[in-house]
């Protein structure tokens, strides 16, 4: 048993440290950046990392450190907004479907299965093709596409609990359906939902970064990690730092949260 305990601590600790670091980093970026992320400086074109520019400068002389601060902020904002939409809507949909069941449940779940079987990046690209690019459109597109996976998760939990003794007892005591759903059953779904949130967050970060890499993301005026990487690719032989630091930020952001999710799952008892 002692071995298992040690591992929980390890995942949690590593995930916690990485996530705290990245969040602190991003919060810093929201209030302060050493340079204007968009400011060009002819003198600093392709400057290597130094005290003045800890991450170096890109081919246009923009400070990479400032740009990753801003880009990570954008990524985090989008990912969180997507999670809020997907999670809240998925929660309501999944709870209702799981609790009441029936024909509507069947139809909604079929639809969710169909959507969830599709690679979300691809669907998001198509939605963006229809509604056009931009930060809010990306949030809307990814948010909607993330609903099915949460709905399925929550539904599964509700189906598990709806016939349990404590729910039956509440029903017999005349507790309203709404109260049963939100007060009696919902708290039991938190562990599963939390690890689902970790996975969802990472998928959102991944989708946003990929889309901005493909040039179908936020507007080019705003720095984004994917777009920085896309630009860095042409110059990476001469200025590898333009590629390295944005990539590092993306990876650390995802790694931290995935370790947290892992720690959570271990704590919940299924090692898978």
């Amino acid at each position: 048993m002692s071995g298992v305990k040690k591992r929980i601590n390890w995942y949690f600790a590593a995930g916690g440290v990485l996530t705290t670091l990245t969040v602190a980093y991003i919060l810093l970026g929201m209030v302060w950046t050493p340079y204007d992320p968009g400011a060009l400086s002819a003198a600093d074109r392709g400057a290597p990392p130094s005290l003045a520019h800890p991450f170096g400068c890109d081919h246009m002389g923009r400070d990479i450190f400032s740009r990753t601060l801003q880009g990570a902020g954008t990524t985090l904002t989008i990912a969180l907004a997507v999670l809020v939409i997907g999670c809240v809507a998925g929660l309501v949909l999944g709870a209702l479907c799981g609790y009441y069941g029936g024909v509507v449940d069947g139809a909604v779940m079929r639809l969710c299965d169909a959507v969830a079987a599709f690679p979300s990046i691809l669907l998001a690209l198509v939605v963006i093709a229809v509604i056009g690019p931009g930060k809010y459109n990306i949030i809307a597109a990814l948010g909607v596409l993330f609903i099915p996976s949460f709905a399925r998760l929550v539904r599964g939990e509700f189906v598990k609990y709806r016939d349990r003794d404590f729910v039956q007892a509440a029903r017999l005591m005349g507790v309203s359906h709404g109260r049963i759903i939100f007060v009696h059953i919902l708290p039991n779904t938190w562990p599963v939902l939390l690890s689902g949130l970790a996975i969802g967050f990472n998928n959102a970060v991944l989708a946003e970064a990929s889309m901005s890499y493909l040039g179908i993301g936020v507007s080019p005026q705003e720095a984004s990690l994917g777009q920085m990487l896309s630009e860095a690719q042409s110059y990476m032989l001469t200025t590898p730092w333009t590629m390295f630091f944005p990539a590092l930020v993306v990876v650390v952001l995802i790694l931290g949260v995935s370790l947290l999710g892992e720690g959570l799952r271990e704590r919940m008892g299924d090692g898978l």
Binding site: L206, A209, G226, V251, I254, L255, E262
Partner: peptide, 10 residues
Amino acid sequence: QVTMSIPNFV
């Protein structure tokens, strides 16, 4: 765990 956290394009 690390590899899983790196996006394809990276």
